[in-house]
């Protein structure tokens, strides 16, 4: 009962936040609302008994990506300000979004129609539960010794997959650091000048 209420309220907040993200023109406020959006969806994951996904969503969505978007905003703010005013005004008047709206509406209706065939939430006869889930539930603890089954799957059964993901994430992190963290703290004397690129 109270679970349903919390679900509905969180989903309503999520919808309000996403509409506000689309409508707002202040980039800083948009990033702040993205943080709220991540917290809300992580809360929904917790309500739906997926704490591992919620961990990831909270760490990546609310933590890292908020900080990265703020850093990007800090780097690009000077150029963005002048663009922003004339960028916002024109398309909202001249442009008629009926065709995109129709496409989005039809796609959404098709997706909703597709959900009718999806088995119910937590249905024990769902294909996802009957295929390999039983094997993992029965054998994860004796085979790997990890008490959490999701962790056992991620870190042991799919260990190489996770290793590859870690490599991808590391590469992406290095690339983002090269883009965002360009200036070194040591070059603080040349920060006033515009060309503060002393490659040591």
């Amino acid at each position: 009962m109270i679970d349903i209420l919390i679900n509905i309220t969180l989903l309503a907040f999520l919808a309000i936040t996403s509409v506000a993200i689309v409508r707002l023109t202040n980039l800083f406020a948009t990033i702040m609302l993205f943080g709220i959006f991540s917290l809300l969806s992580a809360g929904l994951f917790v309500v739906m008994d997926a704490p591992d996904v919620a961990f990831t969503e909270a760490a990546v969505g609310a933590g890292i990506s908020t900080v990265l978007m703020l850093a990007t905003l800090a780097l690009t703010k000077g150029q963005k300000k002048s663009h922003e005013e004339d960028y916002e005004e024109k398309p909202s008047r001249a442009h008629r979004p009926w065709l995109p709206l129709a496409v989005v509406g039809i796609t959404g209706a098709a997706l909703v129609y597709g959900t009718w065939d999806i088995p119910g939430f937590g249905d024990p006869d769902a294909p996802a539960q009957t295929h390999v889930a039983r094997y993992y539930i029965e054998n994860a603890m004796p085979e790997t010794g990890v008490p959490n089954i999701v962790t056992a799957v991620l870190a042991s059964y799919r260990g190489f997959d996770t290793l590859g993901e870690v490599a991808v994430v590391f590469t992406a992190g290095v690339a983002v650091l090269l883009l965002i963290g360009g200036k070194r703290p040591k070059s603080s004397t040349s920060l006033k000048g515009d060309g503060g690129q002393d490659e040591t």
Partner: peptide, 26 residues
């Protein structure tokens, strides 16, 4: 998970305030 959220919330707010007051992160 609630503890993790508290930590992440703190980091995010510190990052936002650092950006607002100093205009950069470095």
């Amino acid at each position: 998970i609630a503890l993790v959220y508290a930590l992440i919330n703190f980091i995010g707010v510190v990052a936002a305030l650092k950006l607002v007051t100093q205009k950069n992160f470095h």
